[in-house]
Every structure is written in C-alpha cells, then in structure tokens.
C-alpha cells in the first residue's frame, strides 16, 4: 500500500493561504480532508483542527454522540489556537461568527476482508477506483456540486462563546463499502472531486502520476478543466 498527497492553493494565492487541510494517521489507518469555507475566517485552521482530531481519535461517526465529542475537542483546539485579545477590529468582528469547513473522514477496517467507513459533511468526496469503475460518495454527479454545501461549524468566537453554548448539528452521511479488490481510494476536496467525476478512473491515474506537480494542476485550472479553487487529495494505492 502506498500513499500520495497533494494540497495546492488556488492560482494567485500563496501556498500558505490554502484553506484545505488533510491529515493521515497511518497507524490507525484513518484519513481526512477538510475544505475551509472562504466566506469565514480562520477556516483553514478549523479544517486543520477537525481533520487532525478525526485521524488521531477513534471516533465512530455513526454515533451522534461520538461526532459531537469529536467536534468539541476540535473546537477546543481551534479556540485555544487563536489569540482573541490581539485581533484587529475587522478580524475580531468577523471571527465572532466562527469558522466553517466541509469534512471527509475515512477509516480502513481489516476484518475478514478490507472495507472502510467513510463519513462526510458537505462536498469533499471519497472515491473507489477498481481499475474500471468509479464509485463516489457523497456526491455522485458533477452537476451536484452546489454553491452552498453542508458545513461543519466551529461554534462562536469570542465573546459570543461566553453567551451561547456550542450546539453542533449532526449532518453526517455514511458509506461502508468493501474495498478488498480495489486499485485505489481517493479523498478529495470539491474542485478536484468534480474533475474526477467528469473524467473517470483515468483522471485518478493522472492525479497519481502528477501529485507533486503544481504546474500540472495549474494547467488544468487555467484551461478550465478544474475551477480555480484550493485543491487537495489523499490517494491510497493498493496495487
């Protein structure tokens, strides 16, 4: 089994401005990609806290209780990572409303056969490539990438957090496929996911081969094959 990752900021932005985040815990065989919403502030940091919390924990997100526990722990990390007293007025005003991101988390499960648990909120996707056929979750058609996907909220920033409790919503979708004979699995944020759905399994071969080349993806963005957005993916090859 080998793993490749990619995370490229949108054209015109510096790499550190990417609001996508990916996390891997090889020991636990847990993987996550999260896409920070550009409308909110500190969303890249929130995406990083959430992806990290998922892979380093044992959360089974079929359970709302476990999901809320994961969010509360991720939120603690998010909140403590921001120096609320030193924010400029405009950052302070915007951060009151908290941060948002999509979530995709996958756990490999080795039992009699190899299968996985995939959990999603929003339009970051999970793909199974068996060499011929592509399965996707939770979005199944390129037309279904909307402007307003479901998002995971960090809860309020300071000082609203002192007035109102953090009450997250349970909007998790689950998928539990067997992947014993598959060639590759992919976790990807929306822009790259749409490209994969439009171009099928061959596109995963191309992404695998060019995962280290920003130039390759810039070209796809400049010719309109991929929309100009942050793109990130984790590709796991079993062959």
């Amino acid at each position: 089994m080998s793993i490749k990752t990619l995370n490229f900021s949108k054209a015109g932005n510096r790499q550190e401005e990417s609001e996508d985040s990916l996390a891997i815990n090889s020991e636990r065989e847990r993987y996550s990609v999260c896409d920070g919403a550009s409308d909110s502030i500190f969303s890249g940091w929130w995406a990083s806290c959430l992806a990290g919390e998922f892979v380093d924990g044992d959360y089974n997100l079929d359970s709302g209780e476990e999901y809320f526990k994961m969010l509360l722990n991720a939120r603690k990390k998010w909140y403590s990572g921001i120096n609320w007293n030193r924010l400029q007025w405009n950052v302070k005003n915007k951060s009151i409303r908290g941060s948002y991101c999509t979530f995709m988390g996958v756990q490999l499960v080795r039992d009699d056969s190899l299968y996985c648990n995939a959990w999603a909120v929003g339009d970051s996707c999970f793909f199974i490539d068996d060499g011929n056929r592509l399965q996707s979750f939770p979005v199944s058609s390129p037309e279904d990438f909307g402007v307003h996907p479901d998002l995971v909220w960090s809860g309020y920033g300071h000082p609203m957090n002192e007035r109102k409790e953090y009450v997250p919503e349970y909007k998790v979708k689950a998928f539990k496929p067997e992947i014993e004979n598959c060639k590759r699995i992919v976790l990807a944020t929306d822009a790259l996911s749409k490209y994969i759905l439009e171009n099928g399994v061959e596109s995963i071969d191309r992404i695998w081969e060019n995962s280290g080349s920003r130039e390759f993806f810039d070209k796809l963005r400049s010719n309109g094959s991929i929309k100009n957005d942050d793109i990130s993916a984790i590709i796991i090859s079993f062959s």
Binding site: E17, I41, F42, G44, W45, Q88, N90, V91, N93, K94
Partner: peptide, 14 residues
Amino acid sequence: LNEIISRCTKSDGV
C-alpha cells in the same frame, strides 16, 4: 465599506 472589508478579511489581514 465595513462590509467590503469584512468580505476581504482573512486571518492574515485584508
């Protein structure tokens, strides 16, 4: 004007 600034505000500035 404040709203435009807010729309353009990221954690690293405007």
